[in-house]
Design a protein around this nucleic acid. Structure first.
Length: 800
DNA sequence: GAGTTTGAAACT
DNA sequence: CAGTTTCAAACTC
């Protein structure tokens, strides 16, 4: 096991320890020198190979990833262990415990030689402590990079020692701690940790990790993906393995998921860091921005991880992620995620109670966590640039909650917008090059919520409902499809998060109608707007509010977010909503007739911050005709595979009208058939669905599975292919079921709860049995329409 | 940049 | 609830 590298590393460490600088640092810091020394080694040692074995828990994997990022050396297996530990450190106490467990396993794999023989003398307890401490550190931002350096060493050393010495015993201990609760861990940490300083140091390390993550985030960009690919080629196997191993596990625990996400990201990016600079990793890690980015990443990763999970579930054997092509694919997702990332940041903030963000958030306890996050963002300013807008909106919303604050709200909103605009514009531009991710993150404050939200989705709704207008609106806005306006929706979206970026061009509506995007978004018009006779300004607050009330009186959901994300977060919904980005839905649905839901005219297609991920597919609630929404057809067909999507787009663009008509006709026919079939067979359908659930829903809960089954895929394919009605029937059945599920999401929408009933007056809805929702299913279908569709049948028939 | 298309919002 | 009008964004040239 021992690799020459280790030895080499070890020697350097010794030298380092001997160096006066090291001694000086030691004297300064309470941390024991031994630990510090090892740290560097740990970083250096990152062995992908070991990782896979480690994966027992997702957390572990995540940790590894983080480590990897730091430690550029993939070669050393022993290092991997250390890396894992460090990763654990990063994670919360619980996570740490898990990590320890994982690490223990890893240790088993790597331990023999890995220990590197460094001064790992540290007692097991210390190791456990380290683990715990690390998490804390994560929470606490390390102050200076210097500390990071020292701490790194210390932590790493500790980790290494742990690995070498402990591994096994520690693991159990950690587990206990985790089980017992964070409190225990905390106690241990305190005891163990000699001082907070150490923690800070560790924190620095953590930060460095984060920074690395941030780097990764940056990499999220296509370029990054490419780089990643390149990296992958070598470590690819290990990485892919790692990812694969993680994926399934991630699904196991949500928390784990998040961490896993990190891991994935780290894994992906891992290589880059190497290329870039190890130093960079550590360096500025302390910066909050990095942490935020990390969080965003994490969030995005979360999303992606979820998606991946679905994928895994669907294609478990395939190891989707591992494949290079897949990797690329992932990269894309990430990008998308990145957009959402903004939300992720918030999330991360939540997770990691950090200074700046927490400050604000604390002020508004009432506010939902999301809101809090948003608020903090403002203060954060830097990271939040983009966020600011959103924050402002949120603040406004908060204010709105309390009538007294209304004025404040508005002011804030206006303020926020203005601020946001600049931010938006700036970020958008620069970031564009930089890529979407940054923008995304920024813009996505709103989206973030969704993302974040596991809660977000729900919270958003709640907020919207609770909060009068602007808040909800703004939040919604972010989600709202209208972002579309600009060519670079992402930026704008992100930046504006809507409110900030939105600009209207109203001439007759005075910006007091929903025609006005700004008004609809609950934002005041700003300079960038080219509206005429605009009343949507703070000066006319009374008018604006009155108008809002009127509109709301007519349609309480007028200002509610139009697009709902399945964010998943909410366990309740989670199932039905499919976690995939595609899961996002338009509450009302569209009514497109000529655009085939392939243009921005379609509110569903337009999108929403998450759109980059896949946009919003049409759902049952849609009354569109000839729906070809690549993100999901009301029929139920879901996300088409890229190729399919492309094809469709091409079709949309290039297809002759006649073709379109044909397709439409086919679809209609199919729909009719479906309707016919569907109507009659409720019981059968249900049974089928149930049956199908197992199949399709490997990943997802029954509900989702149901959708998936029916999943649009089947319908869609059938439609396109002119396939059999049976599927359609089946799908419809599914739809019927889904609708039950739907309620959660749709509840807000007020869409018909019952699948069939829901049918719009036109009856079209009724037909459109399939939902877009089933994101996973949709994808499946998209990926392998034929296969999927076929399987579903068998399952159904058998059951019947 | 002007004109057209489109579909949501508003109105009847 | 259905149909029509208004409106502004999206799109095309």
């Amino acid at each position: 096991m021992d690799t020459p590298e280790r030895n080499q590393i070890g020697t350097p460490k010794a030298k380092f320890e001997d160096s006066p600088v090291f001694n000086y640092i030691n004297s300064l810091s309470p941390i024991k020198p031994v630990k510090s020394v090892h740290i560097t080694q740990t970083f250096s040692s990152l062995s992908f190979a070991s990782l896979p074995s480690v994966f027992t828990s997702p957390h572990v994997s995540s940790h590894k990833a983080s480590r990897f990022l730091r430690g550029h050396n993939p070669s050393d297996p022993s290092k991997s262990e250390s890396s894992l530990e460090s990763g654990n450190k990063v994670s919360t106490n619980e996570d740490a415990a898990e990590l320890c467990l994982n690490s223990a396993e890893l240790h088993e794999d790597c331990v023999p030689g890995d220990s590197i023989g460094e001064a790992s003398v540290e007692p097991r307890n210390e190791h456990s402590k380290f683990v715990i401490e690390l998490p804390r550190n994560l929470k606490y931002d390390c102050g200076s990079p210097e500390c990071g350096a020292t701490t790194r060493c210390g932590t790493e050393a500790g980790c290494e020692s742990e690995v070498a010495d402990l591994s096994a015993p520690l693991v159990p201990y950690v587990q206990k701690t985790s089980e017992n609760g964070s409190s225990d861990d905390g106690a241990h940490l305190q005891n163990i940790c000699q001082s907070e300083q150490r923690n800070e140091l560790t924190g620095c390390d953590w930060e460095s990790l984060i920074s690395g993550a941030s780097d990764l985030l940056i990499f999220d960009s296509p370029n990054g993906s490419e780089a990643f690919r390149g990296i992958m080629q070598n470590p690819l196997d290990s990485v892919t393995r790692f990812c694969n191993s993680l994926m399934p596990r991630l699904s196991q625990n949500e928390t784990a998921d998040e961490q896993n996400v990190l891991v994935l990201d780290t894994i992906v990016s891992g290589e880059q860091p190497e290329t870039e600079d190890p130093s960079s990793q550590y360096g500025e890690a302390s910066q909050p921005e990095d942490t935020e980015l990390m969080q965003d990443h994490l969030n995005s990763c979360m999303v992606s991880s979820q998606i991946e999970k679905e994928d895994n579930n669907l294609e478990a054997p395939m190891q989707f992620n591992c494949k290079p092509g897949l990797n690329l694919h992932r990269g894309l997702r990430r990008r998308c995620l990145d957009f959402e990332m903004v939300g992720a940041r918030r999330k991360s903030l939540d997770n990691v109670p950090n200074s700046s963000s927490s400050m604000l958030s604390q002020s508004d306890e009432k506010v939902t966590t999301n809101d809090k996050q948003l608020v903090p963002m403002k203060p954060g300013g830097e990271s939040s640039r983009c966020i600011l807008p959103g924050i402002g909106l949120h603040l406004n919303a908060l204010a709105t909650t309390s009538k007294d604050y209304k004025t404040i709200k508005r002011e804030n909103m206006a303020y926020g917008r203005q601020l946001s605009l600049p931010n938006l514009t700036a970020p958008a531009n620069s970031p564009t090059a930089g890529q979407g991710p940054g923008h995304e993150s920024f813009s996505s404050a709103s989206s973030e919520r969704d993302m974040d939200g596991t809660e977000n989705g729900v919270q958003l709704l709640q907020d919207a409902s609770q909060e009068p207008a602007f808040l909800a609106n703004e939040e919604f806005n972010q989600n709202s499809p209208k972002k579309k306006r600009h060519v670079l929706p992402k930026f704008e979206q992100a930046g504006e998060t809507e409110s900030s970026c939105k600009r209207c061009n109203c001439k007759k509506s005075k910006c007091l109608k929903l025609y006005c995007e700004c008004f609809a978004a609950g934002v005041y018009c700003i300079e960038p707007c080219s509206c005429q006779e605009c009343f949507n300004k703070p000066i006319h607050e009374d008018t604006v509010l009155a108008t809002r009330k009127q509109i709301e009186s007519r349609n309480p959901l007028a200002f509610a977010p139009k697009v709902i994300r399945n964010a998943d977060p909410v366990p309740e919904y989670g199932e039905e909503s499919s976690k995939t980005p595609a899961s996002a839905r338009h509450k009302r649905g569209c009514n497109c007739k000529k655009s085939s839901c392939l243009k921005k005219y379609c509110e569903c297609y337009q999108v929403h911050p998450s759109a980059y991920l896949g946009g919003v597919g049409c759902s049952i609630s849609c009354r569109c005709e000839g729906c070809k929404n690549t993100f999901g057809r009301k029929d139920g067909s879901f996300m088409l595979t890229e190729t399919e999507a492309d094809e469709e787009e091409a079709e949309a663009c290039g297809k002759s009208v006649a073709e379109n008509h044909q397709q439409k006709n086919e679809i209609q026919e199919n729909e009719e058939q479906h309707q016919d079939s569907a109507l009659p067979t409720t019981p059968l359908r249900l049974s089928r669905q149930l049956v199908s659930l197992p199949f399709s829903s490997k990943n997802k809960p029954p509900r989702s599975s149901v959708f998936s089954i029916g999943s649009s895929s089947g319908l869609y394919t059938s439609q396109k292919l002119g396939i059999l009605c049976p599927e359609t029937k089946f799908e419809r059945h599914i739809q019927a079921v889904p609708e039950d599920e739907m309620p959660e999401i749709l509840q807000g929408d007020g869409s018909p709860s019952t699948g069939i009933k829901t049918a719009s007056p036109n009856g079209k809805r009724v037909c459109p049995p399939n939902r877009e929702f089933a994101p996973s299913p949709g994808r499946r279908a998209g990926r392998k329409l034929i296969l999927q569709s076929i399987p579903s049948f068998p399952s159904l028939t058998p059951q019947n």
